[in-house]
Each structure stands twice: as C-alpha cells, then as structure tokens.
C-alpha cells in the first residue's frame, strides 16, 4: 500500500463519513458543518491527485462563499433556535432504496474499469495553461459563464430588493441603515 493510497483511504473515509453526516443531521446548521468537512475533504482530494488550482478554487468558492451563504440562509429561515428536521420512516426507506440502487449501478460501472491507470499519467496542467485555455480554446464557455454570473448578480440583487420593500411595508421597521430613501 503506497502513501498515496493510504492518504486517499483516510480522505475518502472522512469525505464519506461527513457525507452521511449531512444526510442524517437533525439541524440545518449541523448539516452545513458536515458539508463543510465534505467539501474540504474534496478540496484536499484534488490536491492529492495533483489538481492544485482546482483544490484552491474549491476552497475559496465553496467553503469561503457558498457554504457561508448556506449557513446564513439556514440561520435566517430557521424560525426558532436549533429547529430540528423530521423525516418519516417511509421516506427514509424509499430514499435509501433509490440511493442504494444508484450507488450500486455507478459502482458496477466504476469497477468494470478495473485497475485502469497502471503507469503514472502526467500531471494535469496548472493555473497558467488553464488561464491560457480559458482565453483561447475555451473562450466561448468562459464568456457564457461570465454573462451568466452577471445575470445571477442582477437577479439575486433584484430578488433581495423586492424582499426589502415588502418587509418595510409590512413591519414598518426602521429606515435602511445607510440613511438612503426606502
């Protein structure tokens, strides 16, 4: 058993255990914490298989951005302190069956590949070649994603703005903190 493999086993068990934690947790913030461990584990998995740029991107975007947003959302919508989620037995049964079937099918396909890479493949290109690729051969998807991000920014701002107006109208709360006109 090589060191790579040993590290992979450790990482994989952390990832798998915390993924189970996400599913079975009773409060939304606890789920988020387990999701945090899963995402960090996946980031380190990227580092382990040599995709350093992706590992760092995963950390900064998912852990620093998305997950904080999720926890924020969980706190703002929880309705009470440490509200628990209830799941019926039957739902566990059906959901578990579906998940098990999917896992079995995917695992079957993966195992059919066998011990595929027998020799060392070259490391994937780093941040430099990736950036060049984004501006040359993969320019179109890059531009589409940029426009998509802009649309998302505008859309999220629009949704948040209507929410503020509705809250102001119904609750008659104080004026916005920066003193602007409501």
């Amino acid at each position: 058993m090589t060191l790579d493999l040993a590290l992979f086993v450790v990482l994989a068990s952390v990832i798998a255990a915390s993924a189970i934690g996400v599913v079975v947790s009773h409060t939304i913030v606890r789920s988020a914490v387990f999701l945090l461990f899963t995402l960090i584990g996946v980031a380190f998995l990227y580092f382990l298989i040599g995709a350093e740029f992706l590992g760092a991107a995963q950390l900064i975007v998912y852990v620093g951005g998305t997950l904080v947003l999720l926890v924020f959302g969980g706190m703002l919508t929880s309705g009470g302190p440490f509200q628990t989620l209830k799941v019926r037995r039957l739902e566990w049964l059906f959901g578990g069956l579906v998940a098990l079937a999917i896992f079995a099918a995917l695992a079957q396909v993966s195992l059919a590949l066998g011990q595929r890479p027998t020799t060392d493949a070259p490391l994937p290109p780093g941040a430099g070649p990736l950036g060049v690729a984004f501006l040359t051969s993969h320019l179109l998807p890059f531009e589409i994603v940029s426009v998509h991000l802009l649309v998302v920014l505008v859309g999220a701002a629009y949704l948040a703005r209507t929410r503020k107006r509705a809250a102001l109208g119904s609750e008659d709360s104080a004026s916005p903190p920066n003193g602007g006109t409501p």
């Binding site: 760092a56 991107a57 950390l59 620093g64 941040a127």
Partner: peptide, 10 residues
C-alpha cells in the same frame, strides 16, 4: 504549492 497565494487566501 504552485498556487500558494491563492491557497493562503482560500
């Protein structure tokens, strides 16, 4: 790391 600056920020 080849992406040291990015990693530390992240």
């Amino acid at each position: 790391l080849n992406v040291g600056a990015f990693f530390i920020l992240a």
